[in-house]
Computed example of a mutant assay.
Amino acid sequence: MKNINLLYKLLLFINILFLILLLVLIVILVIPDFLYQKPHDDKVLGIFNHLVIFCRGLLLFMGLFKIQQALKAIIKYGFYNKVSEVRFKKGGLFLILFGVIGFIFNIIIKSELELNVFITNFVQYFFVLLVGLGLFVFSDFIKSGTILKEENDLTI
């Protein structure tokens, strides 16, 4: 339980920093793009480039936040509980969405990237997708463990 508590605190710190980064991104890049209608001729998505980057970051933040909430539920209610199962599943869903949208975004902006950056981005999105799928599997383990725990509690 000590390691889960440490992981929860680390994720809390990362999420706070990530939220600050997202706020700075929206204030410095996204809002001025729409207020001043800055043309971005060098970007494939033009004026919407920073908005898409912000939305992808928001998906990643939501995934990490759901994982943080699931860890908090484990600390509060024990390892096998319905709350952590649902939150891990939602966190996995957000990470899967982030990975899939990352693949699509990477393909759209491939003309702006060097080959090594293009391939590195694909590898990173693939690993995020695997983590999201892993969270789905992990939530099923928690669900099975919760059912076994309930049955065990009923027999005692």
Rank of each mutant, 00 (worst) to 15 (best):
F122I: 12
G57S: 09
L97S: 15
N121H: 08
L45D: 02
H50K: 09
I28F: 11
L60H: 10
I74M: 12
G102D: 00
L148S: 13
F138W: 13
I96E: 08
L154I: 15
D41A: 01
N121F: 06
S111T: 05
S139H: 00
G132Y: 02
L35T: 11
M62Y: 14
K43Y: 14
Y125M: 09
I47M: 00
L133M: 13
Y36Q: 00
F136M: 15
F88N: 01
F79I: 13
E150S: 10
G145F: 06
I101A: 14
N81I: 02
L130F: 04
V117L: 13
L35F: 07
A73I: 01
K76I: 14
K90P: 04
I119V: 08
G134R: 14
F48A: 11
L113N: 06
Y36F: 00
V86S: 11
L129V: 05
V123I: 15
L45S: 01
V30C: 07
D33V: 02
I101C: 10
N106V: 08
N49I: 08
R87F: 10
I74E: 04
G91E: 07
G57M: 03
N152I: 09
H50S: 06
F48C: 03
V100M: 14
Q124S: 08
I147V: 10
K76L: 14
G132T: 01
T155R: 09
L35P: 03
L51P: 02
L148Y: 12
G57P: 02
V137Y: 14
T120C: 00
Q124W: 02
L29K: 00
K110R: 10
N116F: 10
P39R: 02
L135F: 11
V83R: 15
I47A: 00
N121S: 08
Q68E: 15
E85D: 02
I74K: 07
L93N: 12
F136W: 15
V30Y: 06
H50F: 05
C55V: 15
R87I: 01
Q124G: 03
F141D: 14
L58M: 13
Q37V: 01
T120L: 01
Y80H: 10
F138A: 10
L97K: 14
F34N: 02
G102W: 01
Q69W: 11
I28M: 08
E151G: 10
L130P: 00
R56C: 05
V100G: 06
F98N: 11
S144F: 07
I109A: 01
I104N: 11
L113K: 11
G46E: 04
F127T: 00
